[in-house]
């Protein structure tokens, strides 16, 4: 768009995939770049629309977020919370070691 016309290469795909935390095998990267470029080329047509002075629409709900009292309204059932975890011990979620 107004930035340099985006053409994704395999390297950029690898970078986005890493940002999205999805492993994309190297042999898939070039093909995926092509697919994504097609979609990005197609959305380029939005540049034809004059949006000067238009406020971005972030929600269709014509309301501001409701407020409520800052009180505990839910909870107290750790068994339920960890029930679906592959690896849960004593109401904790376990993950591979992060700090050496």
């Amino acid at each position: 768009m107004s930035v340099d016309k985006a053409t994704l290469d395999a390297k950029t795909v690898a970078k986005i995939a890493h940002l999205a935390r999805i492993k994309v095998p190297e042999e898939d990267q070039a093909g995926l770049a092509q697919e994504l470029n097609k979609i990005l080329d197609w959305v380029e047509q939005l540049n034809e629309v004059d949006t000067d002075g238009v406020a971005p629409m972030t929600s269709v709900a014509a309301q501001t977020l409701r407020r409520r009292d800052d009180v505990v309204s839910d909870g107290g059932y750790p068994d339920k919370v960890v029930k679906n975890a592959t690896d849960a011990a004593e109401h904790f979620f376990s993950v591979p070691k992060v700090v050496e």
Partner: peptide, 15 residues
């Protein structure tokens, strides 16, 4: 790329 794509799309959405 946020402004060029996402923000632009939100503005067109308003249109």
């Amino acid at each position: 790329y946020y402004d060029a794509y996402y923000l632009k799309a939100q503005k067109v959405r308003a249109r």
